[in-house]
Amino acid sequence: TEAEQLTPVLLDGLREENLQFVSKLKDSSSSCAVDVSSVWWEAAGCRKLCVVTACESSVSLWKPLALDHWEKVYTWQLGEIPVIQIVPLPDTCNLVCIALGNLEIGEIRLLLYSSENNSFKQSVVKTGNIKAVLGLKDGRLVSSSRAMQEQQVEIVSLSETGRCKDRLTLMPPEETVLAFAEVEGMRDALVGTTAVNSVAVWNLKTGQLLKKMHMGYSYPASICHRAYSDSGLLFVVLSHPHAKESESCGNPAFRVVAFNPKTARSAGVMFSSLPPGHAGRYVEGEVKDAWAAAVLTSGAIAVWDLLLGCCTALLPPGSDNRWTLVRWSAAGAGLLAGRADGSVCVYRYA
């Protein structure tokens, strides 16, 4: 029965399976998985794409072995503050960033290996009432936090050894920023979604808040996942945990919206909903390039092709062990699917 649970169901109209099971890892000492991610890790001159698993009190690094097996390399013990999420840092090696806190993030920490004293270690990058955090290219970390009535939006540049090289404060909007997304292909552009359903645009070089664009209340609590600019328009991929169901588009999990940054006007481009006959709303998910994946309230994982605008794969929930996490791998077309019991299944999406 487990083999059945690990196998994607074929959706109507698709001729071949495009999500293939590769391997499974299970931390026998853990039963409280809160997040999973992948990270490039170099040891003895060999760089490998490793898996990072987090439970509330510890974070483990796993390296791939032959025959689709995994070996735990190290476990960082983190003390009393629970881990909330892993924060991937694109284009970095030997660095894992995590967010810790109770209900909301109170601390951001780096986990790393120090060749100077030949040991694994951890260091605090930021503390405060942190509302959102995102790892950016070139070892940068952006976060929004609140102190009294003031909001701070800050970029921290990290060195390869995990030191904070530089800090830059961005001009904050009045409302709280709940999520960030880099604008692909524009190193100095960043977008964020706010608590009153606006999209903010910053210049990361100057710290300027360039524009704030409201997107209406039809899809409240929208979270940005990806942004890119094309033909003078800014396209933002948003998820919608609280979207209203409609006959035309069902329960949309993701939506692509085009914004004109010059006029602040917007228009919906595409919905990503479940195929007819499949129930479930968006719980959490991730977008990579034109691929979107989400865990649904049914305990299933769905994958969409945002270019085709359709659901391309569905992992059904097990009878007693639902999917709780889904992340795209940092390289290639890998998908990491996690369960609450701490097991992680690696799939190949093609």
């Binding site: 210049n203 300027q208 360039l210 524009k211 033909s231 003078g232 800014l234």
Partner: peptide
Amino acid sequence: CSDSDLGPVSLDWFEELSSEAPP
């Protein structure tokens, strides 16, 4: 270049907004 719903667009929107926004 313009779009009837979204208004006139600019390929250089990022540079233009950066020169207009307060520092």
